[in-house]
Design a binder for these strands. Structure first.
Length: 634
RNA sequence: GGCGACGUAGCUCAACUGGUUAGAGCAUGUGGCUCAUAUCCACAGGGUUGGGGGUUCGAGUCCCUCCGUCGCCA
């Protein structure tokens, strides 16, 4: 056994569907997991979903589902997305599972007994979007939450707090002396935060306000804060504390996150572990964002940047390759569909795919697919091997340093060199001139180089590598990274198949179609949001009979109406330019009755008339036949 | 306002602790090959490394300053 690697993605919050950012983290981890398995490591790969909190309850309500129904549904979507992207997670943990809740409660109880928590009354501005109290600095000029643009609610309540400040000196020292966080500029960011005292972390929420969470074992009136719950998945997912194997995994733990959740992972989590008496994780790897300048994320474009859409349209490996090749781990990167296609065509279709196809084609056509024996090896043959082996060394070095884009580039240099080799040795020419042994040697050498590429790239291109190796008469399952440099494979006398092109080119017409689509869609960026019918049902619309109407003094647009629906209401409406008061009396109109009453020109308006307007003017919406005043409109 | 990152060819990025004429890939142009997915190979053009100043025998790399983009904190 070469060693143990325990890799985690964050558990994804199920208030939204999987997007490119989720896919990137997950695919990076999957590629690493596959890579280390190939190298003979014992790998444990954990992913999952974070399912508690107020936002989930709200999102579920919005679509008229119970929280449990809702989270079941989205968790399934996440799992299916990863399955279809060939993600080889070893365990999928959900925070609503019993096995997770038990561990959270165990940890809460333990920390409580150690006296880490204290009860305190707190009052302040609570933002439901953030699910926490905000400081005055976190509010904008209008007193709204800067993130959510909504006014906070003033709350006063008792809660349990965790004194983080106590651990600040320890954490600072730890981060300074150990390279826990990579890339290091994120470490600097955290150290910067640790210059200031840490406010206590509120770890509870009163059930009276929020019940969708894990109950505190020492106080049944509370549930725990989602972050406190969520971070623990990294332990509950490996069977802590009951399954003894948790410890060997934990001491080899590598967390992967996007930069937005740096703080909980770099501050709360190590402190929680310390308080528990556990060592910190081994490393925290932080990556940047995928930006979409040319196509902002919008619902209409959602399908294009939807990881599933991309993989289904172009192949399961393509997205993996693109994401790893294009982003320098740690930094932000630009995603564009055009670039995606260019990258695919240049690297996978033209260089790699074509190399494979032209080689296999020659073997199939002239040697009936039979792998030939090596004849005498010439300097150029050995040169190819040297180039491939050199590239593999660099590939390993960069891959293990998470520099995937450089690693892939290094390997592709060897792939390009193989194209140079086939051109220079021109096996088709040797065949024509009857030197079959020489041609056989060249092709065998090439087949072996291709096998090396297929194995080395299998963590990134699992699907096509498997197919390719099968066509070479091999099986990925029986191979390890060391076989990349076994020039005896594929074996003499075995049969290879060219099959159909592994990476068919995406034609130019298709690319220009996309280019046309992008700007058009961009212009319609004011995408109308869609809502479920429950949202509409919130509005109480009624038929109202106008019994009185008069102009509002001093306002040339306003009329004051009295309407029966069936009780009498006063409504101020801006329709004076289109209707005379006397025209309106006796008319039946549509009224929104549960609108918050407002004073207009000092007159109370208890509702609103519905009207249609275009550039010609305005017309009231009226029932086609006479109906009872107060009849519901739906 | 404080801390930090970034700014290198049209695009995406390299260049270890400062060391010879700043490199790749894509895109562009020209030529070649024909086994191949109109693919591949060769060659070429293209950069006062954001501006300015400084240290040094020598700076993309270090220092100062200004400009621009972004992040975290306030």
């Amino acid at each position: 056994m070469a060693g143990i690697k325990y890799f985690t993605t964050p558990i994804y919050y199920v208030n939204s569907y999987p997007h490119l950012g989720h896919a990137y983290t997950t695919l990076v981890v999957d590629s690493l997991a596959r890579y280390y398995r190939l190298k003979g490591y014992e790998v444990f790969f954990l992913t999952g979903t974070d399912e508690h909190g107020d936002k989930i309850v709200k999102a579920a309500q919005k679509v008229g589902k119970s929280p449990q129904e809702f989270v079941d549904e989205i968790a399934t979507i996440f799992r299916k997305t990863w399955d279809s992207l060939l993600v080889t997670y070893d365990n999928f943990i959900r925070t609503t599972e019993e096995r997770h809740k038990k561990v959270v409660q165990y940890i809460l109880q333990k920390l409580y007994e150690k006296g880490e928590f204290y009860l305190d009354e707190y009052e302040g501005n609570y933002c439901f979007g953030c699910e926490r109290f905000l400081t005055s600095k976190e509010l904008d000029e209008e007193g709204k939450c800067k993130d959510h643009k909504t006014p906070p609610v003033y709350l006063k309540e008792k809660n349990y707090f965790f004194n983080l400040e106590k651990y600040r000196p320890w954490l600072k020292e730890l981060l300074e002396k150990e390279d826990l966080i990579y890339p290091s500029f994120y470490k600097e960011e955290v150290l910067n935060l640790l210059e200031e005292p840490l406010p206590p972390l509120c770890i509870s929420r009163p059930k009276a306000r929020l019940s969708w969470g894990i109950e505190l074992p020492f106080d049944r009136d509370y549930v725990t804060y989602v972050w406190f719950d969520a971070l623990i998945n990294y332990l509950s997912g490996i069977g802590f504390p009951e399954n003894p194997s948790w410890e060997k995994l934990w001491t080899n733990s590598y967390h992967f996150i996007a930069k937005d959740i740096l703080k909980p992972h770099a501050i709360y989590w190590p402190i929680m572990l310390r308080a528990l008496g556990l060592p910190p994780y081994k490393k925290l790897f932080v990556h940047g964002y995928w930006l979409m300048h040319k196509m902002k994320m919008s619902k209409s474009l959602g399908n294009i940047v939807d990881p599933l859409y991309l993989s289904q349209k172009y192949g399961r490996d393509i997205l993996r390759y693109y994401l790893l090749r294009e982003m320098a781990f740690g930094y932000d990167a630009e995603f564009s569909l055009e670039n995606f296609i260019l990258r695919y065509n240049a690297d996978l279709a033209n260089d790699y795919g074509n190399l494979i196809f032209r080689t296999l084609n020659l073997v199939e056509k002239h040697f009936k697919g039979v792998v030939q024996p090596y004849g005498e090896l010439r300097p150029e043959d050995l040169e190819l091997r040297a180039v491939v082996e050199g590239a593999l060394k660099k590939y390993e070095k960069y891959f293990e340093a998470l520099q995937f884009h450089t690693a892939l580039e290094e390997l592709f240099q060897a792939i390009r060199y193989a194209n140079v080799y086939i051109d220079r040795t021109a096996p088709w020419k040797e065949i024509k001139e009857g030197r079959l042994e020489r041609a056989g040697t060249i092709l065998r050498n090439l087949l072996s180089a291709i096998k090396a590429f297929a194995i080395a790239l299998s963590p990134v291109l699992p699907d096509s590598s498997e197919t390719l190796l099968r066509n070479l008469g091999l099986n990925l399952k029986d191979l390890s990274f060391e076989d990349t440099t076994n020039w005896g494979l594929p074996k003499e006398g075995s049969i290879v198949y060219k099959g159909s092109p592994l990476f068919p080119r995406i034609e130019k017409e298709e690319i220009s179609e996309m280019k046309i689509q992008e700007p058009i869609k961009e212009e319609s960026k004011e995408e109308k949001e869609v809502y479920p019918i429950e949202e509409f049902r919130k509005w109480d619309l009624r038929i109202g009979k106008v019994v009185f109407a008069e102009k509002v003094q001093g306002a040339d647009k306003l009329l004051r109406l009295e309407v029966l629906c069936p009780e009498k209401r006063q409504i101020v409406s801006g329709i004076a330019q289109y209707y005379k008061p006397e025209e309106l009396i006796g008319k039946e109109v549509v009224i929104v009755v549960n609108l918050k009453p407002a004073k207009i020109r000092g007159i109370l308006s208890e509702g609103m008339l519905l009207a249609a307007h275009d550039d010609k003017g305005l017309t009231l919406i009226v029932p086609e036949k006479e109906v009872t005043a107060g009849a519901k409109v739906s």
